[in-house]
Amino acid sequence: MTAIIEIRDVRKRYDEGPPALDGLNLQVRAGEALAVLGPSGSGKSTLLNMIAGLDKPSEGAVTVDGLRVDRLGEAALARYRRERIGMVFQFFNLLDDLTAEDNVLLPAQLAGVPRARARARAAELLDQLGIARHARAFPGRLSGGERQRVAVARALMNRPPLLLADEPTGALDSASAADVRELLVDLNRNGQTILLVTHDTALAASSATRTIELMDGRISRDVQTVTR
């Protein structure tokens, strides 16, 4: 299978401290569900930010879906985030003033997708993720698990080849967390490439097909866990 993420000799240094990423090399193949584990300060979030184009490496190359992300300007990065990746955050990051449906629609609207097509896709996702009945609800009225489902639906709106998830169960109770775990497994089974940053080893064990562990900005362990 082709590599959807290719990271070569990436180094990231903030100020004078030790590097957050220290000559990291990583390949992620399409269809994989990669869990990135590691203690706080190991470089997990920095790695996610590099892949999402939210931050640039001090050295090295980050290629996602054939695109050198580290070389993109602001406008191209925005386009990249719209078309190539979907992001799920620990605290959902839904816009409180928009309904669940409007939140889900946002990436398509920003990309200029025709309204009817966008609405059809949003309805399909809300239905698929079991939250169609909450389409008109504001996020404040939803449970944590439901909010995260809305966030996942939003991330998948533009059918990105890569789904990035940052501690997706970190703010959820155990029942909701299990719910989200199942959702991620289902998505991966259906071919969605996922990169998951987490402290939660249970989540990694159940949802990921491969796990890497970071320590001081380097990969200290790389384990293929499941083959789907």
Partner: peptide, 13 residues
């Protein structure tokens, strides 16, 4: 704004 930019809102938008 950060959320919108993470979802692909361009500088012009």
């Amino acid at each position: 704004l950060g959320v919108l930019k993470a979802l692909g809102m361009s500088p012009r938008q």
